[in-house]
């Protein structure tokens, strides 16, 4: 029996003073699925991830994660309690923390945090960077750290918001294979937002156009 990791029903959202960016959107993702979400710039892809993460509140509709209503009528679970991961293009690494401390941040209260971190550092080939600070490492390395940081708490759903768009093609190719390996090993459910169809095909099993998810 498959389990719904994410279920979105009749979701609509508009920024203050502007037209609706998402209108009556429906989406379901099963456990272990890798879904790619495609669409042109400004169509609301990133906004959808922010809504799922709890960083924005929908106008109407509901979001359910693993059967729990997290956004909906009179319900708004804060981001810290949704058990999702989010990797964004700008990485948003904490500049005052070392690579290791950045990765530990989401699991700082767990007993086996050091083991989790060393495993992730090894898988992503960044063990040598563990004591370095974000400004001391390259863009590609920063993206690996951001990914490790998001994976460390073992999120039920990992959302990737155009994480590779600032990187060159050879680095992207290198990262694609490493990330695919991590995702397979950890059996993580993925929702990837990108405008690159090839990238979506490499990293995900199911590709969706955001326009097709919105019922007119």
């Amino acid at each position: 029996m498959t389990t719904n990791v994410l279920k979105i029903e009749q979701l609509s959202y508009s920024y203050i003073g502007s037209n609706r960016v998402l209108d009556n959107l429906e989406l379901e993702i099963q456990a272990g699925e890798r879904v790619g979400l495609l669409g042109p710039s400004g169509c609301g892809k990133s906004t959808l991830l922010r809504l799922i993460a709890g960083l924005e509140k929908p106008d109407v509709g509901s979001i359910t994660i693993l059967g729990n209503l997290v956004s909906g009528h009179r319900a708004m679970v804060p981001p810290e309690n949704r058990k999702v991961g989010l990797v964004v293009q700008e990485k948003a690494l904490f500049p005052h923390m070392s690579v290791k401390d950045n990765i530990i941040f989401g699991i700082r209260k767990e007993k086996n945090k050091n083991k989790v971190v060393s495993d992730l550092l090894e898988i992503l080939k960044i063990t040598s960077l563990s004591e370095k600070f974000p400004h001391e490492i390259s863009g590609g390395e920063q993206q690996r750290v951001a990914l490790a940081r998001s994976i460390a708490p073992a999120p039920k759903l990992l959302m990737l918001d155009e994480p590779f768009s600032a990187l060159d093609q050879s680095l992207k190719n290198e990262l694609y294979s490493e990330i695919s390996k991590v995702i397979s090993e950890k059996q993580i459910t993925i929702l990837l937002v990108t405008h690159d169809v090839d990238e979506a095909k490499i990293l995900t099993d199911r590709q969706l156009e955001i326009a097709d998810l919105q019922k007119k």
């Binding site: 709890g54 804060p78 981001p79 949704r82 989010l86 964004v88 948003a92 904490f94 941040f105 940081r149």
Partner: peptide
């Protein structure tokens, strides 16, 4: 984006 990352990571 630092706040967003921290909050998504459970802070």
């Amino acid at each position: 984006s630092l706040d967003n990352s921290a909050r998504v990571l459970g802070a």
